[in-house]
Simulated scan of single mutants.
Amino acid sequence: MAKKDLKEMSFLDHLEELRWLLVRSTIAIIVMAFLTYFVSDYLFDVIIFGPTRASFFTYQYLCELSHSLGFAESICITELPFIIQNTEMEGQVNMFVWMCLLSGFVLSFPFILWQVWNFISPALYEKERKGARVFIFFSSLLFFIGVLFGYFVVIPMSVNFVATFSVSSVVKNQFTLDSYIGMFKTSILAGGLFFELPIIIYFLTKLGIVTPQFLRKYWKYAVVLILIIAAIVTPPDVVSQLIVAIPMLLIYEVSIFLSVLVHKKRLQENG
């Protein structure tokens, strides 16, 4: 199928389109960030600092899981012995602004994807342009699942590990607000973006940059890397490491499966 006839755009025209993409996306993030201001108490007290309390959902679930597996109290968390302190004059103000912006980015992600799609759609076939809704839906879904994975799995595992690890009873844990927020932002964004891997692999395979053979060839390296990441962010027990590693391995396998489908279709189209 031939591509739709479009008016030739110069390099400056493309830059202008890209500029407006960035402007509209930035406005969307700021608007959503402003809206989070009205629920800031809930955002900070319940969501952001939720993983710092032993009553957090993940800790309670792991405790119940340990009982059901016959591990007794081995992974039950009853206390997180640390405090978070602000050591900078503008620390809390900066934290407030950045977390509102992070929330704005997460909430406006589907709109940003829509803007990206509108930017690249002129270069696509008519049939491919009709898949906009499917692309935005699944990309957004994967991103939000990744954010939830980072929030309910990676963050509490990391907090539990650093809170309970100690080189000596003399040392007391007093984490700075900046370090906690930095870990929070990294975990949320990394989780969301990692779960976009199938979408990224889909387009890279479609462009011929990546093949299923390439992904299978380096499968063992990907497994080792994922296990290392799981070992770093979790306490030193097998159950916690598997809870983090298994979803990441499944995402990589889904990416290979999609790559196989796209590669076969690409070969058929090229004859």
Results as ranks from 00 to 15, higher is better:
residue 1 M to A: 08
residue 3 K to P: 02
residue 4 K to H: 09
residue 6 L to H: 14
residue 7 K to S: 12
residue 19 R to T: 11
residue 21 L to I: 07
residue 22 L to N: 02
residue 23 V to H: 01
residue 28 A to P: 13
residue 29 I to G: 06
residue 32 M to A: 09
residue 33 A to Q: 12
residue 33 A to R: 06
residue 36 T to F: 15
residue 38 F to N: 01
residue 49 F to G: 10
residue 50 G to M: 12
residue 52 T to H: 13
residue 54 A to V: 09
residue 55 S to V: 10
residue 55 S to Q: 13
residue 56 F to D: 09
residue 60 Q to M: 12
residue 62 L to R: 10
residue 66 S to H: 00
residue 73 E to S: 13
residue 74 S to M: 12
residue 75 I to D: 10
residue 78 T to L: 08
residue 79 E to K: 12
residue 79 E to Q: 14
residue 81 P to I: 02
residue 86 N to M: 02
residue 87 T to E: 08
residue 89 M to D: 03
residue 90 E to T: 05
residue 91 G to V: 07
residue 93 V to N: 08
residue 96 F to D: 13
residue 97 V to H: 03
residue 97 V to Y: 11
residue 99 M to V: 15
residue 102 L to P: 14
residue 104 G to K: 05
residue 105 F to E: 04
residue 106 V to H: 05
residue 108 S to I: 04
residue 108 S to P: 05
residue 111 F to Q: 01
residue 116 V to A: 12
residue 121 S to P: 14
residue 124 L to I: 14
residue 124 L to S: 06
residue 125 Y to F: 15
residue 125 Y to K: 14
residue 126 E to G: 04
residue 127 K to P: 01
residue 130 K to E: 15
residue 135 F to A: 13
residue 137 F to L: 14
residue 138 F to M: 13
residue 145 I to F: 12
residue 145 I to D: 04
residue 146 G to Q: 04
residue 149 F to Q: 01
residue 150 G to H: 00
residue 159 V to R: 09
residue 162 V to R: 05
residue 169 S to R: 03
residue 172 K to L: 13
residue 173 N to L: 10
residue 183 M to G: 15
residue 183 M to Y: 11
residue 185 K to T: 15
residue 186 T to I: 14
residue 189 L to C: 07
residue 193 L to D: 03
residue 193 L to T: 11
residue 194 F to G: 01
residue 199 I to N: 08
residue 199 I to D: 02
residue 200 I to Q: 10
residue 201 I to C: 12
residue 207 L to D: 09
residue 219 W to M: 15
residue 228 I to R: 01
residue 229 I to D: 00
residue 229 I to K: 00
residue 246 I to E: 04
residue 249 L to R: 06
residue 250 L to R: 05
residue 254 V to W: 02
residue 256 I to P: 12
residue 256 I to M: 10
residue 260 V to T: 01
residue 263 H to K: 04
residue 265 K to Q: 12
residue 266 R to I: 07
residue 268 Q to G: 01
residue 270 N to D: 11
